[in-house]
């Protein structure tokens, strides 16, 4: 009996300490259930798929901000690069397979495109960090870094979108789908295999990242740098190893998101804008630099979006969630799960 009251007390305490997070989580759950009842389970599944992708994008943003203090506004361009790489790797394979049918290869060919995209992202991340952020960090004086880094990312975004327009052209390059097989039946709803795979890829990548950050020596070092940069150096951690690694991971994840969503977002120079906005939306709502918050936040935002589309109409998709974010930030400026800025 006594056990029970203390549990209830503990629960009450947790809720009152995290009131904003609790309200948003409960609201999201209610919204998701309502969505399921009134519009069918498929809408809930769509929310999950989009949520996984926003989470994959937002985790990179949270990591880069938390570890390097970079407000990354060129994250969408990593998405764009991923989409293009996947397109240019996957379509020749697909065309080849159309002439030389091979069911086993057809099943795994999409992964070639995605892996290529993730690798390209990883390399791009290292190059950007070493070539641009590293010299900027050396030259920035204390207190100037965040603003300088912000301007640099905006510049990178301009150069990359226009560079893509110049080199590849402003045409839409998309695919009807990676796996052109009949949709799966899940709980009485038909859902495209591509969506299921996109969700699975997001989950696996996020789980792998979580394991890496929590259980490995290098992952712990990344978290150490994000919590106390000077303390991390005192432990013998080399920032010139951790920074490129972090940037590379974030860029690779964004590129992977771009690749696995190629069937939804056709590759073109400014395709990264929408994912960038929503990833920022997620990160600001969850709390800047909060990686766990970014994962949960991705799903929350996706439910808001799907519900808006369903109940208010597709034209409101961006408006209502954005208005909601303004309200959330007015009430809890550091995000619902708290930010490292707070401390």
């Amino acid at each position: 009996m006594e056990q029970k009251t203390s549990l209830a007390d503990a629960l009450r305490e947790t809720i009152s300490e995290n009131l904003a997070a609790t309200i948003i989580l409960v609201a999201t759950a209610v919204l998701a259930v309502w969505l399921g009842i009134s519009a069918g389970l498929s809408q809930v599944i769509i929310s999950l798929v989009t949520g996984g992708m926003w989470a994959l994008m937002a985790v990179g943003l949270a990591l880069v901000f938390g570890v390097m203090n970079v407000p990354h506004f060129a994250h969408g361009e990593s998405f764009m690069v991923g989409a293009f790489v996947a397109y240019f790797v996957f379509t020749p394979i697909r065309d080849y397979l159309a002439q030389n049918p091979n069911p086993a290869l057809t099943a795994v060919a999409p992964f070639a495109g995605m892996i290529a995209a993730a690798l390209a992202g990883a390399v791009l991340g290292v190059i950007l960090e070493r070539l641009l952020f590293y010299p900027l960090r050396i030259k920035s004086r204390a207190g100037e870094w965040v603003m300088n880094a912000f301007l640099l990312t905006v510049g990178i975004s301009f150069v990359m979108t226009n560079g893509a327009r110049l080199l590849i052209g402003a045409t839409f390059r998309g695919i009807p789908g990676y796996w052109l097989v009949p949709p799966l039946e899940i709980l009485g709803t038909r859902i495209a295999v591509d969506r299921v795979m996109a969700f699975a890829i997001a989950l696996v990548s996020i789980a792998a990242l979580w394991f890496f950050l929590g259980r490995t020596r290098t992952g712990r070092a990344i978290r150490a740098v994000s919590q106390d940069e000077v303390g991390a150096q005192m432990m013998g951690i080399n920032l010139n190893f951790i920074f490129p690694l972090t940037f590379s991971l974030a860029t690779a994840m964004a590129a992977l998101a771009g690749a696995s969503l190629l069937f939804m977002f056709q590759a073109y120079p400014t395709v990264g804008l929408t994912p960038l906005y929503f990833a920022w939306f997620v990160v600001m709502m969850a709390g800047l630099g909060n990686v766990a918050g970014a994962i949960v936040g991705g799903f929350i935002v996706a439910v808001f979006q799907t519900a808006t589309q369903q109940f208010a109409g597709i034209a409101w998709t961006d408006v209502i969630p954005t208005a909601l974010m303004i309200v959330i930030l007015l009430v809890v400026p550091f995000g619902i799960f708290g930010s490292e800025m707070e401390e």
């Binding site: 150490a224 919590q227 106390d228 000077v230 303390g231 005192m234 013998g236």
Partner: peptide
């Protein structure tokens, strides 16, 4: 980070602990 690897350990006044660990 190299001085630590070489065998010097510095315990600072502000401690620089990893508060979320």
């Amino acid at each position: 980070h190299r001085t630590t690897q070489m065998g010097i350990s510095y315990i600072s006044e502000d401690l620089n602990l990893f508060v979320d660990m």
